[in-house]
Simulated assay, not measured.
Amino acid sequence: MITIEITNLDELVKEHRGPLTAMLGKIVADVEGEVEKIVIEELRNEFERRGIRANFCSIEGIHLRRIMTS
């Protein structure tokens, strides 16, 4: 299993969905969910380009403890 914590959520939403969505996202949308969609889209596109078949799953309700950062 691979777990990735994205730490620049607002920047990604702003870049991929526009500044208005990023600004309103904090109020009316699930910013983490939006970033998850962006990352899955990017991964899916790259995997397809390379001929990799994969299933993407979203897991809710897990608490992660960071032990190392890069």
Rank of each mutant, 00 (worst) to 15 (best):
S70Q: 07
S70W: 03
N8I: 05
F56C: 04
I62N: 05
I38C: 07
R53K: 13
I38K: 06
A54K: 04
A54R: 02
K37Q: 15
R53E: 08
K26E: 01
I2A: 11
E11G: 04
L64Y: 11
E41I: 08
V28K: 08
D30P: 04
A54Y: 04
L20D: 12
M1F: 00
E15N: 13
N45E: 15
V31Q: 02
T7P: 05
G33K: 14
R50H: 14
I2M: 01
M1E: 10
T21E: 06
S70G: 14
E60K: 12
I67W: 06
I38V: 08
T3L: 07
K26I: 10
E34N: 05
E48I: 08
R66S: 11
T21F: 12
I62A: 10
I62R: 09
T21K: 06
E46V: 10
T7Q: 06
E5L: 04
V35C: 00
G61M: 02
L12I: 08
I62Y: 06
M68Q: 15
S70A: 10
T7G: 08
I52L: 05
S70R: 09
V13P: 00
I4S: 03
P19T: 05
C57K: 10
G33W: 02
I40C: 12
I52S: 05
I67F: 02
A54E: 03
F56Q: 15
L43N: 07
M23G: 00
S58F: 14
G33D: 00
M68C: 13
K14S: 04
E36Q: 14
M68S: 10
M1D: 14
H63M: 02
M1V: 08
E15H: 15
R65L: 10
I67D: 07
D10Q: 07
L20K: 13
D30F: 10
V35R: 01
R53W: 13
V31M: 13
A22S: 08
V39S: 04
G61P: 02
E32Y: 13
F56P: 09
G51F: 00
N8S: 11
E60G: 15
T7N: 05
